[in-house]
Simulated assay, not measured.
Amino acid sequence: MNIVVDSGNTFFKVGYFESEKLIRYTTRLSFEEVIEMIRVEIPENMLYSSVRHTVDEFKEALNLPVKIYNLSADTLLPITKNYDTPETLGADRIAASAGANFLFPDEDLVVIDMGTCITYDLIDAQAVFQGGLISPGMKMRFNAMHSFTKRLPLVEPEINPEFIGKSTRKAMQSGVMNGILAEMEGIIERYRHKSPSLRVVLCGGDAAFFENSLKPPIFAVPELVLIGLNRILTYNVSLR
């Protein structure tokens, strides 16, 4: 069994795999909860990816005789990075790209990851990560309007809001939700000018708000980052 551990700025997520198949996953975990979970079911192989705790902190807390791979700028990957600053490339971006390439090999892909920020990354049919775009995420846009103005409220998202808002709240919902949708459609269209056969792969916590509004074909893979982390893990294990 493989275990992959993914940490963002707030919570951890743990995925359990048998070979390449995702068996189960748990999210919104604390560092301490992750340690307790892994001690209950010790894996054969493990990959750790975190922006909060170093791999040395993780190894010390876990204190188990298990080989732990750490995802960093130096980690060997099943895809190639064509990126000017590979040391600054976010782990989630490269993991999602590796996951998409594993699920849809030999295809031009754009991976849209809808989290704190929205990233649009191109992976070509030769498994080369070509870079992409980074844009403010949904909650960031709502928070920005509230934080940087004196009178605008903090508004919650709504699926398919009316395009012409008849109140300030409705207008803000439309501005964010329909604005993101228009942004996504425009970026996808520009990518498709370069590659008409382009496949669009959607992931991230906010993807559910938009996946049914985008023009098909769109492939939603909610746990794409975990799948990509496991693909990177199995690739490194195969090189031992």
Rank of each mutant, 00 (worst) to 15 (best):
R151S: 12
L122C: 06
D92P: 02
I94M: 02
L76C: 12
D121W: 00
L76M: 14
I68E: 08
D74R: 15
V110E: 12
D106Y: 14
L76R: 15
D113M: 07
A73D: 04
I68M: 10
G99E: 01
I79C: 04
K139N: 12
F129V: 05
D124I: 03
Q126K: 15
D84C: 10
I118C: 07
Q130E: 09
A100N: 07
P86E: 04
A125T: 03
A98L: 04
T116C: 06
V66P: 03
P86S: 05
M145T: 09
E60D: 12
V55T: 12
D113N: 13
F102H: 15
L89A: 04
T88K: 12
Y69H: 13
C117Q: 03
A95L: 01
Y69A: 10
G99M: 02
Y69K: 08
G131D: 00
A91W: 06
A96D: 13
L152D: 09
K150P: 07
K139W: 10
D106V: 06
T116K: 08
F102D: 10
Q130N: 12
T54I: 06
T85I: 13
F129K: 04
A95P: 00
A100Y: 03
L103N: 08
I79V: 13
A127I: 04
H53C: 15
F148W: 10
V111W: 00
F142W: 12
E87K: 10
V110T: 14
A95T: 03
D106A: 12
T119V: 02
N82F: 11
S72G: 14
A125Y: 08
M138S: 02
G115T: 02
Y69C: 10
A100H: 04
L71M: 14
A144H: 08
V110W: 09
F142Y: 15
N82D: 15
T75D: 08
F129P: 03
V155A: 02
D108R: 11
N63D: 14
I94H: 01
T119P: 04
I123W: 01
M140K: 10
V128I: 08
D124M: 02
A95Y: 00
L71H: 12
V66Y: 02
V55I: 13
V55Q: 01
L154T: 03
V55L: 09
R93F: 01
R151Q: 14
H53M: 14
P153K: 02
K59W: 09
I118L: 13
G131Y: 01
A96K: 06
V155I: 08
T149L: 04
D74L: 15
Y83P: 07
N82H: 13
A61Y: 07
K67E: 11
K150V: 14
V111A: 05
K139I: 12
N101Q: 15
Y120P: 08
L122G: 01
E57Y: 06
A91C: 10
F104T: 05
A96P: 11
E57A: 09
P136M: 00
G137M: 03
Y69N: 07
D84E: 15
L133T: 14
S147M: 11
K81Y: 03
D56S: 14
K139E: 12
D108T: 10
P105D: 11
F148R: 13
T88E: 06
T85H: 07
F58T: 03
Y69G: 07
F102P: 06
P65G: 09
I134M: 04
